[in-house]
Design a protein around this nucleic acid. Structure first.
Length: 256
DNA sequence: ATGCCCCCGTCCCGGGGA
């Protein structure tokens, strides 16, 4: 089973690029972020007409997550547990075959410090609690998405320039490391420990052409999923298309 | 130090992104 994650920066603006990528056989399951679409306006038919199922959790204008799959989608949960007052659509969870998956759009958190950074850290605390609870299933788990975390200086083209940013701050990296301490494996780093691999390039200042990228999209695997990890990679091709998302897909192949 | 670019919406500017 090949599982990918992609922040598409509006599903309506990226619909052809995304459905073409799915039709090319690029993956079996796609975790989608930043759909920027209310559920009533989500282009469900574009997925079902090419044989894909889709589970969606959106809101107006901002955020929004989804899971698309060749296989039936079961046990859908929308919204990250732990705060009933949180109305931002940043988390959807489901089971596909025996694999538990979450599509995650973690808050940006800038400017930091400030209330938006506090929201990010609170969200990460809740994510860590949910991640730990899921381990009790003892099933393969894939937590994938746009984490808005640059885990290490080598994951950034300009670490000094990003110093103090919410994506690189020590508190952010510390909260992200707790996933590893709980038992989750950063799939890309497990297979490519020393390579410079980015998943996001800003639209501005020729960042793509200059390869001024950062690695902020991650696939975090439970031990049962990591044991089945065959390969992991980043498909840079969609970032080079006309009218692209600023993110490009990360994928992993599990022996399931 | 700031903006570059892109997306959204009771929309032609302003908020948000990272």
């Amino acid at each position: 089973m090949r599982i990918a994650s992609w922040n598409v920066n509006s599903i309506k603006s990226r619909l052809d690029i995304v459905t073409n990528w799915l039709s090319s056989g690029a993956c079996d399951v796609l975790l989608i972020q930043e759909t920027k679409s209310q559920d009533v306006n989500f282009p469900v038919d574009a997925f079902t007409s090419i044989g894909w199922n889709v589970a969606i959790h959106g809101q107006k204008s901002y955020n929004g997550v989804a899971i698309a799959s060749h296989f039936p989608i079961h046990d859908i949960i929308t919204g990250l547990p732990g705060d009933d007052t949180d109305e931002q659509a940043r988390y959807i969870e489901a089971r596909i075959e025996q694999v538990h998956l979450a599509s995650i759009y973690l808050p940006n958190g800038n400017p930091a410090p400030g209330p938006k950074f506090d929201y990010k850290l609170g969200w990460m605390e809740r994510l860590n609690q949910r991640a730990t609870a899921l381990l009790a299933t003892e099933q393969p788990i894939v937590l994938g998405g746009d984490f808005n975390v640059i885990p290490d200086d080598r994951d950034c083209y300009d670490p000094l320039g990003w110093e103090g940013d919410a994506l690189t701050r020590p508190e952010t990296r510390k909260a992200f490391r707790r996933l590893a301490y709980s038992g989750y494996c950063d799939a890309l780093r497990a297979r490519h420990p020393d390579d410079v691999i980015y998943t996001y390039w800003d639209y501005q200042a020729g960042a793509w052409q200059r390869d001024n990228g950062v690695r902020i999209d991650h696939l975090m695997l439970s031990p049962e999923a990591a044991d089945r990890l065959v390969e992991v990679g980043v498909d840079k091709a969609p970032r080079g298309l006309e009218k692209p998302s600023d993110h490009t897909p990360i994928w992993c192949e599990l022996d399931i």
